[in-house]
Design a protein around this nucleic acid. Structure first.
Length: 802
RNA sequence: GCGGAUGUGGCGGAAUGGCAGACGCAGCAGACUCAAAAUCUGCCGGGGGUGACUUCGUGAGGGUUCGAGUCCCUCCAUCCGCACCA
């Protein structure tokens, strides 16, 4: 009989649905396993060939875990708020809700056709009011805890999307989504104090099993640094200028200071500044530059001196000038620095340009500090620094900070690059922020009983030109009575960013229909944390960081019982087009998974995506590779023709069977799906080589292949009259003792070069092995003196001879 | 500039410090066929040899080791992050 995936696949998909085969149980006494993949944004383009890679990988894990007796939760849902849907709605005058519904239906059909073992009873959608009820609820908790605040500050604004962006959404100075140049705009925005969790987000990484590159990126993004804040007295004034430095040891080399153009001291002493016009001009230029232009690889430093005001270096009492330059950012540290040109590249550049003194205070450089800054902290020794002279950098840091603290002019300080999360968008298609602005009472949270605050219907979804959300025009929605004083008040018209819904969705899956809480305590205690979460590297500093932050907050509030949401995080590589180029519409090389399923079947698609290469690395698509996997499944199906009776493994293949069970079991755990499949291909080759397969062998083989190719294996299980359903079977066991052959082929080397191989008993002693090896290469050893004999049992014998 | 990764046949890719190239693709030869496709069998890194064999070979150069694709040092190339964070 011919292998016909079309019939087989729809047949089994229906059976699995009818039997609720993959429903996560509520028997909380069973061991649980929570496998999670990032839920997709249901775009109009439908499923991309990149989606099935991670979904199949964890589907394999989930199916294997079920067969190992776990109560498995492997859910799927829709991260459906977002700009593309809204833009499509604007263009076509369709309600985004309808667009979303249509796209979700399409996505769901596509995913269904691939045969994933998702528990569809737990499907969630971030745009569903029953879902965003709890997104808003968490926001209120954040607000009440003082972690959500409104702030007027320069933000990254995309003039094309007409929306403010979080720092994480700005890539190379451009809008992550549309690619337009981002400009700086001062706006009043809701912010979340993720910075308050900076240290916890770093510390938590110690307790989880994430791939190293994810940990490293998160740590770099949070950007912890240790140093000191130091006060520099302004000459002739009581006030001081506070700086942050990681090199307090170089304080004696601070020959000038630099402040950011936005630094408040400029306004404060405007009257005393002698060159105010120049400064105003400089400020204006700086404000016009986008954040990107300001921080772009600027070789040429710009700046202007703050005329009429000087500072005093606290360690030596010397009067030093203050400069203004946009290489100092108001948003980091104190917005002011002490400049040590001898030991900082940027200060060195600036000093060279404006001819400022360079004083060496750390010796050990091979070139004089007039040639280049010496920034090495490992080898340097302090000089020209009075009581610090002769100390190594590390000791000097400690000593100077102690000294500063004692004198009350400085203090130890840790800083982070991480900035607070810009949490409001002037857009329609997002969760309304449940806050009412009362002129008397300020920002008043909506009562929790009033949630969800529904997104109102509007005529136009387009953001207004003055940068307000389209819902701002809905006056009857906006104008409300203050819940606090009853007076006239207005609702917040900004909505939440796309990242809100995904920051806690893994908690909703565990109890998706609960109307009285985001999830019951019992369910949370049972299911959390997620055991294995796979997702894209591109979310490392976005979704992954945000959701860890929210989860840690919920933990601190007592709503969840684990400090970290995800125990294990892995990341898949991208799938590129043929020839290693990115798939894109403009190149016309986009592969639609539907076409692959139609031509080769879902099992082939699944097998190919797992066989394509190392899971964590990017791989390029190859139609011939797909064909190869189909050929493999054809050969699998044709095993039906050579099945013979017998539950036992045949003598020829017994060891091979045990080896393959071991290999596949281990490889599935370690993301090595490609080699697991290779091992199964090799086993199939062996079945054909000996011309038969026993029923016992076939049973085991089908179970091993099932997680990868669930339809064909389930069909063959039935065809061969095996008991019940394959998906209800147990994962096969192997005996370690039977994974090794009685006799082994070992290499015989002379001076490290393999000369021949011999077959000896696995239990042969070293002496026996060496004796046998010597005999095999006796002619080569003739006339030589044996210096050394090395034997690694089961591997090699190496004779060192002269 | 900083951080991370990668570099192995014609291609995708395998190899706890122990026979480099598993498995797949492509290619070549043969079987089947009127023929083609599909399928099956065999070969398939380079040089040398009719041959059993031999020699070179994992980006380059050094080193450690009886033995290195794998460990260490230096360099080159490519990709991905971050980027004036004091």
């Amino acid at each position: 009989m011919e292998y016909s995936p079309k019939n087989i696949e729809s047949k089994w998909q229906k059976i699995w649905d009818d039997e609720k085969a993959f429903k996560a149980g509520t028997d909380y006494t069973k061991p649980k396993y929570y496998a999670l993949v990032e839920f997709p944004y249901p775009s109009g383009q439908g499923l991309h060939v990149g989606h099935p890679r991670p979904y199949t990988a964890l589907d394999i894990v989930a199916r294997k875990r079920r067969m190992q007796g776990y109560n498995v939760l492997y859910p799927m849902g829709w991260d459906a708020f977002g700009l593309p849907t809204e833009n499509y709605a604007i263009k076509n005058h369709i309600h985004p809700k309808l667009v979303t519904e249509k796209n979700v239906a399409h996505f769901k059909n596509q995913l269904h056709a691939i045969g994933y073992s998702f528990d569809w009873d737990r499907e969630i959608n971030t745009t569903d009011p029953r879902y965003y009820h709890w997104t808003q609820w968490i926001f209120l908790k954040l607000f009440k805890a003082g972690l959500a605040y409104k702030s007027s500050m320069p933000i990254n604004f995309c003039p094309s999307c007409k929306v403010g962006l979080a720092n994480e959404e700005v890539v190379g100075g451009k809008c992550e989504r549309c690619g337009a140049e981002v400009v700086r705009k001062v706006k009043s925005q809701w912010m979340l104090k993720i910075t308050e969790y900076a240290q916890k987000l770093i510390d938590g990484l110690e307790d989880v099993d994430y791939v190293e590159r994810v940990k490293v990126s998160q740590k770099n993004w949070i950007g912890r640094s240790e140093g000191a804040e130091v006060d520099f007295k302004l000459s002739g004034k009581e006030e001081s200028l506070r700086v942050y430095t990681t090199r307090p040891d170089t304080l004696f080399g601070a020959t000038y200071m630099v402040i950011s153009p936005e630094h408040p001291i400029i306004e404060k002493y405007a009257a005393e500044i002698t060159n105010l016009d120049d400064i105003k001009k400089y400020q204006e230029e700086a404000s016009k530059k986008s954040e990107f232009e300001r921080t772009e690889l600027v070789k040429d430093k710009t700046g202007v001196i703050l005329g009429g005001i000087n500072a005093i270096n606290p360690v030596n009492g010397k009067e030093i000038p203050i400069w203004i330059s946009d290489y100092v950012l108001m948003t980091y540290g104190t917005g002011a620095i002490m400049a040590v040109p001898a030991h900082d590249d940027r200060d060195w550049d600036f000093a060279k340009k404006f001819d400022l003194p360079i004083i060496e205070v750390v010796g050990g450089s091979t070139v004089p500090v007039t040639e280049a800054a010496f920034t090495d902290v490992q080898t340097g020794v302090l000089c020209n620094s009075e009581f610090l002279n002769g100390l190594e950098v590390k000791e000097a840091k400690k000593k100077i900070i102690d000294w500063l603290e004692e004198k009350g002019i400085g203090t130890r300080k840790v800083n982070y690059k991480l900035r607070d999360w810009v949490f409001s968008r002037q857009r329609y298609w997002g969760e309304p922020i449940p806050i009412i602005h009362c002129p008397k009472c300020g920002y008043v949270p909506l009562k929790e009983e009033e949630l969800p605050l529904l997104l109102p219907e509007v005529d136009s979804y387009e953001p207004t030109d003055n940068g307000e959300s389209p819902i701002a025009a809905m006056r009857n929605w906006v104008e409300v009575a203050c819940p606090c004083c009853g007076g006239k008040a207005e609702r917040e018209t900004d909505t939440m960013p796309q990242w809100a819904g995904s920051s806690w969705y893994f908690l909703r899956y565990i109890d998706p229909l609960n109307d009285s809480a985001f999830a019951s305590k019992e369910a949370i205690d049972y299911w959390m944390p997620v055991d294995w979460y796979n997702g894209g590297m591109e979310h490392t500093t976005l979704h992954l960081l945000y959701s860890r932050f929210w989860h840690k907050f919920l933990y601190d509030q007592g709503y969840v019982s684990s400090k970290e949401p995800y125990m294990k995080r892995t990341s898949h590589g991208m799938i590129l087009g043929e020839g290693g180029i990115k798939m894109s519409k403009s190149r016309g090389n986009v592969i639609n998974p539907d076409d692959i399923i139609a031509e080769y079947g879902a099992d082939t698609l699944r097998t190919y995506e797992m066989f394509i290469g190392a899971f964590e690395e990017s791989a390029s698509w190859s139609e011939n590779g797909v064909k190869g996997c189909r050929r493999f499944l054809d050969r699998v199906f044709k095993l039906n023709d050579i099945v013979v009776e017998g539950d036992a493994y045949s003598k020829e293949l017994e060891i091979k069977m045990h080896q393959t069970i071991k290999k596949v079991s281990e490889d599935f755990e370690n993301l090595k799906f490609n080699t697991a499949i290779a091992a199964m291909m090799a086993l199939v080759n062996d079945f054909y080589k000996i011309g038969k397969i026993t029923k016992g062998e076939l049973k085991t083989f089908l179970v091993l292949l099932n997680p990868v190719a669930p339809h064909i294996t389930e069909e063959m299980w039935e065809m061969n009259g095996f008991d019940g359903r394959l998906y209800k079977t147990s994962w096969p066991a192997y005996e370690e003792a039977k994974t090794v052959e009685d006799s082994v082929e070992i290499a015989v080397q002379v001076n490290g070069k393999t000369r021949t191989t011999i077959i000896i008993s696995r239990t042969a002693s070293k002496d026996e092995a060496i004796a046998a090896a010597k005999e095999a290469i006796a002619d080569r050893l003739a006339g030589q003196t044996i210096i050394k004999e090395i034997c690694v049992p089961g591997k090699i014998v190496n004779i060192v001879a002269k």
